[in-house]
Design a protein around this nucleic acid. Structure first.
Length: 432
DNA sequence: TCATATT
């Protein structure tokens, strides 16, 4: 018991350092990992990060080292240097989120006089400890922003300074006391940034209609103004999205009401006579365009309405999204609690050059004409939320995937051509 | 440019 207590304290002491390790095969145990890391450094414990509900490994773990020196040894020896059997890429070993900051003892100092020098700030704060780093924030013209970041050698020093100065000490020539706080952590900053981006986005009216991708922007079954074929969001039209060769295939022309054919292809609203009921155009569609907006996006052609399969020979020639106008929008993409649903071997696609503005939903919609889409994932930058323009689509069968490849690979979208290939398979052959 | 994941 005494021993357990001591161990606990060691693991969570100020000195110990937590590392985050990625690319850990899901079948490895904590003991195996512990053994492995101990070849390189002193390690107190390993904690595999598991799915909250399934308890399955999430393919990463934490490693606790007694000191920073030991942690650095582990990082230097392993990060990007070793690939564990079953992993697709080398181990990623780094300080866990917030860990570096925790060791930095970094303070924010506010309410500095604009003309104060580093030396003056340094002189004041040196009273409480050794300053490892000091930086007064300045604008483009070197003008002080009236605040600074400062790092102490130890946490105790930082606390001493914080207690002594915050709200109490006025610098020469200043009428307000300094503000001293712990600097925001990276996570806090991220949260703040996300918050800001969020509020800015919601301040823009009509975000949806301005979205270059019209998928998902309109409810399925929604009949747009005019006729459902020519409607376009401001600034965006079919012009930006080239049609695939598809249009030359048999059956293509017969799918579009003659009156509107030309314009539909260009995303131009036809000039309807005043007596004409615009909605008439969108009606026949029950089968044909569960949603008028399918036509607004060229991707609707290859995958959606104009399957390369003979139109009459298979029920699948009309994609699911088109059959039912009520259930199609979110034909339940695999978003099962964070995990991504993978299809059988050969049924998973890797897609590159996805338009920036596409999200999971748009990707799914674009690829749903070839089979049931089990999952569709566009990768986004963790910090900015910006698409990395690649992603994955999984189908139930390899045949679906092959159809999608033959139809969508090389398909021009927004200036670039989609690259559609089978996803690489990193699964190791199971020994037994 | 191939599932990157922070108990």
């Amino acid at each position: 018991m005494a021993e357990g207590k001591r161990e606990r304290r060691e693991s969570s002491s100020e000195e110990s350092v937590k590392l985050f390790v990625g690319q850990v095969p899901k079948n490895m145990t904590e003991v195996q990992l512990l053994t492995m890391f101990r070849e390189f450094a002193l390690v107190d414990e390993v904690n595999i990060i598991k799915d909250k509900t399934t308890r399955a490994s999430r393919g990463c773990c934490f490693v606790i080292c007694p000191t920073r020196e030991e942690a650095d040894k582990a990082v230097n020896a392993c990060h990007n240097k070793k690939t564990l059997s079953g992993a697709s890429s080398p181990l990623q070993v780094k300080y866990a989120d917030g860990e570096l900051e925790r060791l930095e003892h970094k303070l924010f100092v506010g309410m500095l006089p604009k003309n104060v020098s580093e030396a003056e700030v340094s002189a004041l704060f040196s009273t409480y400890g050794t300053i490892k780093d000091l930086q007064i924030l300045r604008g483009s013209q070197q003008t002080s922003k009236g605040c600074a970041f400062l790092k102490y050698e130890t946490k105790e020093q930082a606390i001493a300074a914080l207690d002594a100065i915050n709200g109490k000490h006025k610098m020469e020539g200043s009428s307000v006391p300094l503000v001293v706080k712990w600097a925001d952590t990276e996570k806090e900053r991220q949260a703040r940034r996300a918050q800001k981006a969020q509020s800015q986005a919601s301040n823009v009216p009509n975000t949806d209609s301005q979205h270059p991708s019209l998928f998902g922007a309109l409810p399925l079954g929604y009949v747009p103004p005019y006729n459902g074929f020519g409607y376009q969001a401001p600034g965006y039209g079919l012009m930006q999205y080239r049609l695939p060769p598809m249009q030359n295939q048999p059956g293509f022309h017969s799918m579009i009401p003659t009156v509107n054919q030309g314009n539909a292809l260009r995303g131009i609203a036809p000039d309807l006579g005043p007596s004409m009921n615009p909605r008439n155009y969108a009606i026949p569609p029950a089968s044909y365009m569960g949603s008028a907006y399918h036509l607004q996006h060229p991707l609707a052609y290859p995958g959606g309405m104009f399957s390369h399969r003979p139109l009459s020979s298979s029920p699948r020639s009309v994609p699911p999204a088109v059959l039912s106008s009520s259930s199609a929008t979110s034909s339940s993409i695999g978003k099962g609690s964070g995990g991504q649903v993978e299809g059988p071997p050969g049924a998973n696609l890797f897609i590159y050059h996805i338009p920036q503005e596409f999200g999971d939903q748009e990707l799914s919609t674009a690829f749903q004409g070839f089979g049931r889409v089990l999952s569709a994932k566009v990768f986004v930058d963790k910090a900015t939320g910006v698409s990395k323009c690649f992603g994955f689509v999984s189908y139930e069968s390899p045949e679906d995937a092959q159809s999608a490849i033959s139809m969508m690979n090389g398909f021009q979208l927004g200036g670039k051509k989609l690259k559609v290939q089978l996803k690489r398979d990193n699964k190791q052959t199971k020994p037994y």
